[in-house]
Nucleic acid binder design. Structure first.
Length: 424
DNA sequence: TCTGGGGTCCTAGGACCC
DNA sequence: TCTGGGGTCCTAGGACCC
């Protein structure tokens, strides 16, 4: 018997994290906003029922949110990241084969089992995660990852299943797929949904029966794989060890439009520092750096400009100061006065392990003690909070800094923001 | 006034080689 | 009239995910 896949998915994850330390939010409509308080990226069931949509710009729905007394939060990634780790640890103790797929999802692989066995297993995982972390989760099982995803969706959609649902090889998969839109299938986005509809492929069932040649031509090899997965033939394996990274990025939209080179320079240094920190945390060095900037594409009434510049570094590095020198050369070439910029970002690519010996540059003198200095910098910032030590060129008042006006405290990751408990 | 961020995979097409 | 063919590598752009 072929093995099965399971998918654990945290329910309305960011909202659930906010509720953990603020129980009065239970039963209330709650939404969490993206960076810069831009748009809605998480909704409680109550907020979904009121009709608030994923990705809706905050400024557009603010009056309606206020009208319905919806509780609104800026995103608090320190909290969500930490809670995610705790959920994954609990799962890791219960299941030997786990792939952490995203901040709120994990696939597991398990031997073939019957419906009753899976219901017991799923319920057990659910209860353990709930008890040890406080986060509610749903679990779907299926012969492929794509079917496990759909089973998970059904577990959420039909509460009568108790948060666990299994699609088994012996299930009437065809009947299940007929009730699901093609666009709800994992890997089928809006563009593909439109293409499929034009060809009269509307349900997941239609997709599972579609011609392989047609799919290859119009949706590429990934469309063909999805079709096979819907038929129960596994094409996406479990990836227990994360593959090596190809790129590390850092960018933010500005809280207010930036017009001056000096401010753009500060923001770029700030994001570059963050990207370099990530690089060092993963023991990597970058061989290539891209800097890009853009005006607000939604403001069609204003002049638009977007550009990027990529440069190969003289020598692979994770040294913030070396990266800054190169990035500033890019910025000088890119920056055009007279525009209201909305964003600047950096992308580090050609990543190699810092342990691999690489070609040195004959014309660059080695900088002594840099590694120790950077290690000290990272340790201090880890111990005392980020930006305790920062490069002066990242600026201090940071008027361009992104908005975060409704952020909850970092309850679990900052000593200064621990929840306070009072006993009476 | 105000519209996120980080990441991967696939393909087509151009440059280049012999 | 007629202008090779096969192969690799690289990049930009599209599409998708959460």
């Amino acid at each position: 018997m072929p093995p099965l896949f399971g998918l654990l998915d945290c329910n309305n994850f960011y909202v659930s994290c906010e509720r953990l330390f603020n129980p009065e939010l239970e039963g209330q409509p709650v939404v969490v906003l993206s960076n810069n308080d831009g748009c809605i990226i998480a909704r409680s069931n109550e907020a979904k029922a009121l009709g608030f949509k994923m990705g809706e710009p905050y400024f557009k729905c603010k009056p309606l949110l206020e009208h319905h007394r919806v509780r609104v939060f800026s995103s608090n990634y320190a909290l969500y990241g930490d809670m995610s780790q705790r959920v994954m640890e609990v799962l890791g103790c219960l299941e030997p084969e786990v792939e952490v797929y995203s901040i709120d999802e994990a696939f597991i692989r398990l031997p073939a089992a019957g419906e009753e066995g899976l219901r017991i297993l799923g319920t057990d995982i659910r209860n353990s995660v709930r008890q040890q972390t406080g986060i509610p989760v749903s679990i779907g099982f299926g012969p492929t990852k794509t079917l496990a995803k759909l089973a998970n969706r059904l577990a959420k959609k039909h509460p009568e299943h108790g948060g666990v649902f299994a699609i088994l090889p012996e299930s009437d998969i065809g009947a299940i797929l007929k009730g699901i839109g093609a666009g709800e299938v994992w890997g089928v986005g809006t563009r593909s949904t439109r293409k499929l509809a034009d060809h009269n492929i509307r349900t997941a069932y239609d997709l599972s029966r579609a011609s392989e040649t047609w799919l290859k031509k119009h949706l590429s090899i990934t469309g063909v794989r999805t079709m096979h997965e819907l038929r129960g033939l596994s094409c996406f394996p479990l990836e227990e060890t994360p593959p090596p990274k190809y790129s590390i990025a850092c960018s933010r939209s500005f809280g207010v439009p930036v017009t001056e080179l000096r401010e753009m320079h500060e923001a770029a240094v700030c994001y570059l520092s963050r990207a370099a920190e990530k690089l060092r945390a993963q023991q990597l060095k970058a061989g290539c750096l891209t800097l890009y900037l853009t005006t607000n594409r939604f403001r069609t009434d204003q002049p638009q400009y977007a550009n990027s510049r990529t440069m190969t570094l003289p020598c692979p590095t994770a040294d913030t100061a070396e990266l800054i020198v190169q990035a500033m050369r890019c910025l000088k070439e890119l920056f055009r006065p007279g525009y209201a910029y909305q964003k600047v970002g950096v992308l580090l690519t050609d990543l190699i392990s810092e342990h691999i010996h690489h070609q040195r540059n004959l014309f660059l003198a080695p900088r002594r003690n840099r590694d120790n200095l950077l290690r000290a910098l990272d340790r201090i910032n880890h111990r005392w909070g980020k930006d305790t030590l920062q490069y002066a060129s990242a600026g201090f008042s940071k008027p361009w800094h992104h908005k975060q006006e409704m952020k909850s405290p970092s309850y679990t990751t900052s000593w200064r923001e621990l929840p306070i408990v009072q006993a009476f």
